[in-house]
Structure formats: structure tokens, C-alpha cells
């Protein structure tokens, strides 16, 4: 069983060839909070305010395809929300996961729709189901639930069977 590699320096030592981590560190080392290499998947933790720059850096480094953005609610711990991005490189045949911790006092983050328009629906979905806002999103309205719905169903404090 492979064990996980934790910490950005250890991961960098274990994966010196990896373009995602090295380009992010070269761009702004203080924006990279942490890195994990677990089950052959690289996860990089980015400071919340730096996500747009980090995505642009990775796009320039060859991670050309945006796959997914979603959220994990770690209620009741803080930072409560973890926004997860999956980016793919067609040329390197590699995937990288970015995660951003977001505090529940201000659940918002920069939108990356200016870099990948594909993020549009995904960010609307995160807003709809988790209530995390995206600054600079062109049309942030609910996508799954009706417009007049109250609450955000995928939050952990929202009951599975809903409010009756």
C-alpha cells in the first residue's frame, strides 16, 4: 500500500518533474499553502484570494482543460468550505487538484469563468447547493433548485430529507 506524501517540500522532493507544483511555487510560493500526493493524485492547497492567479498559472503551464469545480462542507470545523478544482493537461496526460479553504463567515471566492468559461455552470451549482458566492461570475443564479428556494441543500446542516 502506497503511503501519502504530505507537505509541499516533501511532495516537491518526491515529484521534482511535476510541472503543476513547480510552476505554482515559481509564481508565488506563499500562495501555495500545502501539497499532498496521495493515491497517485496530487492535491495542492491554494490561498483563497489567489485562486484566479493560480488557475492562470496552471493554464499557462499546460493544464489546458478545466474539468470540475465543486465544494466539500466540513461543518462544524473551520474553515468550513473546501472548494475543489480539477484541472487536466491533454499534453502531459496529468490531472491536478486544487483546493481552497473558505471560512464560513464570508463564503465567497473569485470566479474563474474568465479563464475557463466552462466553470460557469459548475460555479452556479456550487452557489446553489452550498451557498458559496463567486466574485466576477457573469450570471450567478440558482441552477438546480427553483429560484425561490431557501437554503442550500448540500450543506451538512441541511437535513437529508429536507425541511417538512
Amino acid at each position: 500500500m502506497d503511503s501519502a506524501v504530505l507537505g509541499k517540500d516533501t511532495v516537491l522532493a518526491a515529484l521534482p518533474e511535476n510541472r503543476a507544483l513547480s510552476s505554482l511555487l515559481a509564481w508565488k510560493a506563499e500562495a501555495v499553502l500545502d501539497a499532498t500526493y496521495d493515491r497517485k493524485e496530487l492535491t495542492i492547497t491554494i490561498a483563497r484570494d489567489e485562486i484566479r492567479g493560480a488557475c492562470q498559472t496552471l493554464k499557462n503551464a499546460g493544464y489546458n482543460f478545466f474539468e470540475d469545480v465543486t465544494c466539500v462542507d466540513w461543518y462544524p470545523t473551520e474553515p468550513r468550505f473546501q472548494i475543489t478544482y480539477h484541472l487536466l493537461s491533454h499534453s502531459l496526460k496529468e490531472r491536478v487538484r486544487l483546493i481552497c479553504p473558505v471560512e464560513s463567515i464570508d463564503p465567497s471566492i473569485d470566479s474563474i469563468t474568465s479563464i475557463w468559461p466552462a466553470a460557469n455552470f459548475y460555479e452556479r451549482e456550487v452557489w446553489d447547493l452550498f451557498g458559496v458566492r463567486f466574485h466576477g461570475h457573469p450570471e450567478l443564479r440558482r441552477i438546480m433548485m427553483p429560484e425561490e428556494w431557501e437554503g442550500h441543500p448540500l450543506r451538512k446542516d441541511y437535513p437529508v430529507e429536507g425541511y417538512r
Binding site: P107, G131, R133, R141, W149, E150, G151, H152, R155, D157, Y158, Y163
Partner: peptide, 8 residues
């Protein structure tokens, strides 16, 4: 029930 943030 948690109040939904302002949409407007």
C-alpha cells in the same frame, strides 16, 4: 433553518 444569503 439557515437563512439564505441575499441573492439580489
Amino acid at each position: 433553518m439557515p437563512k439564505a444569503p441575499e441573492l439580489a
